Simulated assay, not measured.
Amino acid sequence: MSKQLPVPAELEEASGQRARRRGAVRYLQNEAAPCAERMMLGYALRLRREATGLSAHEAARRLGGSPSKVSRIESGTISPKEGDLSKFFLMYGITDPEEQDRLRELLEAASKTAWWQPWAAVAPKYLQAVVSFEDMAIGVRSYDPIYLHGLLQTPEYARALIKRGRGSAATHATLAEFRAKRQERFAAASDKKLLCIVDEATLARPVGSAAIMHDQLEHLIELTYDSRVRLRLAPLYDYRVHVELGSATIFDFAGRLPTISFAEGYDGGLVIEDEQMVDRRVKAFDALATNSLEPHAMRRRLKAMLATSRY
């Protein structure tokens, strides 16, 4: 189920008024996954409503619906109908044909069957949300203190890791196929950038076998030369490296949608849209990246690990 979490006390302003929230904090488990295109459409409509000075209640009255409907459209929970979109154009003064076409394209994209639908029966809903964000984002920044990011994994590492989870052998094979397709799509999207901070402790924690880990380290060395995949290594035994951020993936959408942060848990995922909470995670991530080893130094460390370890 999806849980709306309370706003932490730190978000309260000095006046006692609650700080303006950009979005929700949602813990996703088994409910329908958020769709990035739908969220982009809702965000664009909300900006237009605010620019006109209309309240959500007034917009709902003119639309002939409830305030909750407007709220769900703006949050990306549901898509507006084509007729409703035309009403929004009229209400908000959206007369530019190019802008209208762009919003219609978002509505059409949100209504299409997602490319991952063949894997929907086995891929958790929160993972489908991650893939949706990954598809639409221009930049992805990620740090995981336990395992390697899915886009960095070799097929063997991925299969060995997936086998640890719940489900049958057939389910594990399907999930591994899904991960491979996800990597393939990212590789084909030349405009996307990925910045991953790899924790050295992750590489010391074996997955599968020594041979699998050896190949995985060699793969990471190759990726340090990739201009689209910027890697950093958070080293052990460095007092400047603070990893309290924990698992965090940050999606940047180049203004089409505010930055979103995601944290994967054992059986679900936390989607954070609240502006201040996202901003704190971005700053913590950037600080960790600054104090982590850059690609050339990471490459030397990985080669030394291969030369001196059992891998």
Rank of each mutant, 00 (worst) to 15 (best):
T249N: 10
G255P: 14
G64I: 05
E264L: 02
E177W: 06
F88T: 04
R26L: 11
R159M: 07
R38P: 00
M39V: 13
Q29Y: 13
P295T: 06
G246S: 03
K87E: 05
T249L: 14
A51E: 13
A169I: 04
P67H: 05
E134R: 06
Y311P: 13
T224I: 09
L148S: 00
L11D: 15
Y266V: 09
G208A: 09
K3I: 11
T224Q: 12
M298Q: 01
S15N: 12
Q276M: 07
D135F: 00
H242Y: 09
L195I: 09
D199Q: 10
P258T: 01
E31Y: 13
A36N: 03
A289H: 04
H242S: 07
T174G: 12
L47P: 01
S15F: 03
A180F: 03
T154W: 08
D274Y: 01
Y27A: 09
Y126V: 02
C35L: 07
R46E: 15
R104A: 01
S227A: 13
P97Q: 04
K125M: 14
Q4G: 04
R61F: 08
K125P: 09
E10C: 08
R256C: 12
L175K: 10
H214W: 04
I260C: 01
L306D: 07
A160P: 04
L270Y: 01
E10H: 05
A180D: 14
A51Q: 14
V207Y: 11
D191F: 09
A180I: 07
Y27V: 12
M277H: 07
V25S: 06
R20P: 01
Y266A: 15
L85R: 03
I146Q: 09
R228N: 15
A9W: 05
H219M: 02
L45I: 02
V25T: 15
H214C: 07
R166M: 14
L5W: 06
T52G: 05
E264M: 09
A137N: 00
R300K: 10
G53E: 02
Y147L: 12
L41F: 08
T113M: 12
A33S: 15
C35R: 15
D267Y: 12
S292E: 03
K69F: 06
L161H: 02
R21V: 09
P34H: 02
H296F: 08
L293W: 02
F89G: 02
S2D: 14
A60E: 08
A287R: 15
D135S: 11
W116F: 07
P8Y: 00
H149E: 04
H149T: 06
N291L: 02
I78D: 14
A32H: 15
E98P: 00
D191P: 02
L302H: 02
A304L: 13
S309D: 09
A114V: 10
R159H: 08
G208H: 10
K192I: 06
L47E: 10
L152D: 03
A33P: 11
P235H: 07
F253L: 10
L220Q: 04
P118A: 09
Y27D: 09
A160D: 09
T77E: 11
D199N: 13
V130M: 11
V278L: 13
P295L: 05
R21T: 11
I221V: 12
L245S: 03
E98Y: 00
E264P: 07
C196R: 03
R48Y: 05
I250G: 11
E156A: 05
G64K: 06
A189T: 01
Q29F: 08
T171H: 10
K81T: 02
D252W: 05
H149W: 07
A263C: 14
H149G: 01
